[in-house]
Design a protein around this nucleic acid. Structure first.
Length: 316
RNA sequence: GGCGAGGUAGCUCAGUUGGUAGAGCACGCGACUGAAAAUCGCGGUGUCGACGGUUCAAUUCCGCCCCUCGCCA
């Protein structure tokens, strides 16, 4: 903890806000930052892409002029993005804002990114697209061979990760091959409580709205995106060059590309986007339930202003 | 009206040479350290269209009826 914080523990200058999609998180964050005279750092794996503002739900003009937001729309969608890069960018931004004496509101819906911003996650090994592709091919042909190699070269990691999950296995092996040492050693407890980089208060929006109403809201959101030109947005983005693997994971990219290529109807694309968004909101709720030291704040149908007030009240 | 195809989980469908059923998606819960809006794990789904017949036993075979789709009138 930096020394200035030790001297002034009653007014933490970093407030983090986690929340699932469609709960009004960015509006709440906007008001919080305004009251605290601070700026916002977004912790969202998809809002980083430039030119995909509609489908990734980036804040509109009104929110943007209200307060400054960082780490939104600053990466070309042709570029492959990683949490490690996000962590570097976030720390740099937060450090700078604090050096300027500004309060920081970290807002996001990507659990891992939020932890990366707040803490010091240790990222082992590098990243090599061709190696990864080769390992993927090997996994498809000879799964057992890949598992055996990981067990031989890094038994400690092999004992801890989910061996049924191809992403985890491939990443672990990739890390050993590139750096000799794989994922950071440590217990699961350590994985869950990475060293905190900033003293902060963490809040999460807990839906108090009826589940059916929330679902309807999520679905309306997709309809609104389409009405706002989501299809054209995706067409424009991919016209500038093939979209990166990570950008293609954003809800709506695959679906709307299929639609542009005449493979599916717009209605089918919309249905799939809604289903994926619902599933996302569920996984976000899982994160919300287990974030360490989190204070839950009822939200949903409440006025963002009131939610922000409640959070400010709890900070005092 | 005639002929053909079909009615099985919320949806799309597979299956049972007769012993009351499954896969994907959806849904619920969970995991998560360089892909995380990703990826993976666990879980329950049900008068197998209705009624009758044959049978120890029918979702499966037979009859009849209802419904859907297609073709022909």
């Amino acid at each position: 903890m930096p020394p200035d914080e030790a001297m002034c523990p009653s007014s933490p200058s970093v407030v983090a806000l986690f929340g699932a999609t469609a709960l009004g998180k960015s509006e709440v964050a906007g008001r919080l930052a305004e009251r605290l005279h601070g700026e916002i750092v977004v912790a969202d794996s998809m809002q980083v892409y430039r030119g995909l503002g509609i489908i990734t739900n980036q804040p509109g003009e009104a929110e943007l002029t209200r307060v400054r937001r960082h780490l939104v729309g600053y990466v070309a969608p042709q570029e492959e993005f990683t949490v490690a890069r996000y962590a570097r960018d976030a720390h740099e931004t937060i450090d700078r804002l604090r050096a300027e004496g500004r309060a920081v509101v970290i807002e996001g819906g990507s659990g891992l990114y939020l932890r990366a911003a707040l803490g010091d996650l240790e990222f082992a090994g590098g990243f090599d697209a061709s190696l990864r592709r080769e390992l993927e091919r090997r996994w498809a042909d000879d799964r057992d061979g890949v598992l055996l190699e990981l067990q031989r070269r890094d038994p400690a990691t092999a004992a801890v990760i989910d061996l049924l999950n191809p992403r985890r296995v491939i990443r672990a092996l990739e890390a050993v091959i590139l750096h000799g040492e794989a994922l950071p050693a440590g217990t699961r407890e350590a994985l869950w409580r990475p060293p905190e980089r900033y003293a902060h208060r963490l809040f999460a929006l807990q839906p108090v709205t009826d589940a059916a109403v929330l679902t309807r809201r999520i679905e309306r959101r997709v309809d609104d995106m389409l009405a706002a030109g989501a299809l054209e947005e995706v067409a424009r983005a991919r016209a500038a060059g093939p979209l990166s693997r990570t950008a293609r994971q954003a809800i709506g990219v695959q679906e709307l590309c299929a639609c542009l290529d005449g493979e599916t109807s717009l209605a089918a694309a919309a249905a799939r986007m809604k289903a994926r968004t619902r599933a996302l909101a569920r996984r976000q709720a899982t994160w919300m339930r287990k974030l360490p030291a989190v204070s839950l704040v009822p939200a949903g149908e409440r006025d963002p202003e009131a939610v922000a007030d409640e959070i400010l009240g709890r900070i005092q």
